[in-house]
Simulated scan of single mutants.
Amino acid sequence: MPPLLLASTSPYRRELLARLRLPFETARPEVDETPRADEDPTALVARLAHAKAIAIARQRRGAWVIGSDQVAQFEGRALGKPGDRAHAIAQLSSMSGRAVQFRTGVCVLRMDADGAFHAHEALDTTVVRFRALADEAIARYLDAEQPFDCAGSFKSEGLGIALFDAIQTDDPTALVGLPLIATARLLRAAGFQLP
Rank of each mutant, 00 (worst) to 15 (best):
F117S: 05
I167V: 15
E121Q: 14
V127Y: 08
T34D: 04
R21P: 02
E136G: 15
L44C: 04
A144F: 02
I89Q: 15
R58P: 08
A57P: 09
R103F: 12
P2V: 07
P82E: 05
R85E: 15
R98C: 06
A182N: 10
G177A: 12
D84E: 15
A113P: 10
P3L: 13
A72R: 00
Y12I: 07
R103W: 14
A174T: 12
I66V: 13
P11L: 02
L123S: 01
G80Y: 08
I54N: 00
A7T: 10
R85W: 15
A174H: 06
D114C: 10
G67E: 01
G191D: 03
F164T: 14
S94P: 03
T125K: 11
M95K: 06
A166V: 08
P195G: 13
T26W: 03
D32S: 06
L20Y: 06
D170V: 14
W64P: 02
R85N: 12
A151K: 02
Q70R: 02
Q59K: 14
L178D: 05
R98S: 07
A184I: 09
S10R: 07
Y141D: 07
R28S: 12
A49I: 00
Q101V: 12
R110N: 04
L20F: 09
A144S: 13
D112G: 15
L175K: 06
S93N: 10
L5P: 03
T125L: 15
V176F: 04
L109Y: 00
Q73G: 10
D38N: 14
P29D: 00
A113T: 14
A166E: 14
D32N: 11
Q193I: 12
S94R: 15
A151G: 07
A18P: 10
I66R: 00
R98V: 09
E39L: 02
G83R: 07
L20Q: 07
A57E: 05
A88C: 11
A190D: 04
T34N: 04
Q168D: 15
A189C: 07
D171K: 11
T42K: 11
Q91A: 08
L175C: 10
Q59C: 09
F130D: 09
L123D: 00
R28E: 13
G158F: 03
V71E: 04
F117H: 12
I161A: 14
A116V: 10
P195T: 09
H87L: 14
D69W: 00
